[in-house]
Write a protein that binds this DNA or RNA. Structure first.
Lengths: 247, 247
DNA sequence: AAGTGGTCTAGACCACCCT
DNA sequence: GGGTGGTCTAGACCACTTA
């Protein structure tokens, strides 16, 4: 029966990988929008000219990456980053009991300007103007983090008109500009609060603070955000789970 | 042909999950030792009374967790935590260029004592004695981290006889005591160096340092180590990659 | 040359969700 | 009741490692 093996195994890329790249591209380009339901496995298989099992392998990999949500009876859906819950995918601050602190937005300001050398190095040499977003968040009435974010202004044209932006920035960027951030690199260090940070966080200058530098990447693995944050350490700390296998 | 579907789908656990648990248990118990080659997929399938494809699904999940290493022609091997390279699965300190710092062991001391309340809370109430390991590591001749580690002494009986221990502690624990650490929770905060830490790290008291608290878990998900570390921040920082999907 | 895992296909039954 | 993904099986060809 299974005689017609076309034996096109010469491809450097396995078929399931090609299917995954194709489908990831459709999400990145906005052709498949967040929340929409994909065609079923057999339809995709026919479209790609591969078998249903191979499509499934690609779909399951994308589900594992958090791009898709699958359920029997319902189908396969493009994940929405949207609701507040899902936003905190990259928010690692927890209190002493391990509970997530609720970071309520207190102040926000936006400016457009010339990129610095550091910003250009991250966002790309072609970046002509940067949009900078400054925020202070509070928890239970006390300020606890100051955030400085930089984006290529061309990629989020008109952002200033929406200010104040939603507290959950990434779902907003996804819905408004199709900027889907899926991975961030974060660098954590200890520092003493400089004057301006101390003032924003309402602590004495010289108090130790956590300082993080983040580079966020979109679906195409482009660096799209540069962020620096200063955290008070008196009621929350930075917590992560590390496993063998994530090198 | 495929008529004999026993339809025993009433099981709450899928067959591949049961196979994975069984095989994980064999590694945890030492029945399958690090570095050894497993029987091939068909042999395992016959032993478990399931098909080769189902065994493969379990094996691939274990490979993704970093427990197994698979390669065509060679077979499936239980990962060794051993060589220096692999040890640093949980070591997150990188210099400004993102290169891993080489943490050379400078001093080490071991003591056995009564568990504190905090140690008992993590290591278990049945823990009667704790083995504490104190280390200072240096990089390019400069001390940069002070580590305090606590274990249930009963689980690493005789550890003091091996002092000084290898620089890479986890491979040693794996080989010597079958303690296979696969996951750690780490909590990072900023602090000013207390007197003793400052002395060990050769910095002025009051200098800001990164302080991390780690709880390490073995294959059975037991908390087996409590560790507190203080890092100088002048030539390395704590760096992590975060992805959507790891909640 | 023999044996392994990697890829791919085809098809079965099931639980579940929706209308 | 029709359709979806979840599970499981069976079998094919391939590239690679090892000896």
């Amino acid at each position: 029966m299974a005689k017609t093996r076309q034996s096109t195994q010469l491809q450097p890329q396995p078929l399931y990988k090609k299917a995954e790249l194709e489908m990831t591209g459709r999400i990145a380009s906005g052709r498949w929008k967040a929340g929409s339901i994909l065609p079923n496995e057999f339809a995709l298989a026919e479209e790609f000219g591969i078998s249903q099992g191979t499509v499934r392998k690609a779909l399951m990999a994308m589900e594992a990456r958090g791009l898709l949500s699958r359920a029997p009876g319902r189908g396969t859906m493009v994940c929405r980053t949207t609701p507040e819950e899902s936003l905190y995918a990259f928010f690692r601050l927890r209190d002493a009991e391990g509970a997530m602190v609720v970071p309520v937005l207190r102040t926000e300001s936006i400016e457009i300007g010339e990129p610095t050398e550091a910003e250009r190095a991250v966002l790309g040499q072609k970046c002509a103007r940067v949009a900078r977003l400054y925020r202070v968040r509070e928890n239970e009435g006390r300020p606890f983090v100051l955030e400085h974010m930089s984006f290529d202004a061309a990629r989020i044209e008109g952002v200033a008109d929406d200010s104040p932006l939603p507290s959950s920035l990434y779902p907003y960027l996804h819905d408004r500009f199709g900027m889907f951030i899926v991975k961030v690199h974060e660098e954590v260090t200890a520092d003493v609060a400089p004057e301006d940070v101390a003032q924003a966080l309402e602590i004495a200058p010289g108090t130790p603070v956590l300082r993080t530098k983040r580079i966020a990447h979109d679906l195409s693995d482009r660096a799209v955000e540069l962020r620096q944050s200063w955290y008070r350490t008196d009621f929350a700390s930075y917590q992560v789970e590390l496993s063998r296998s994530d090198s």
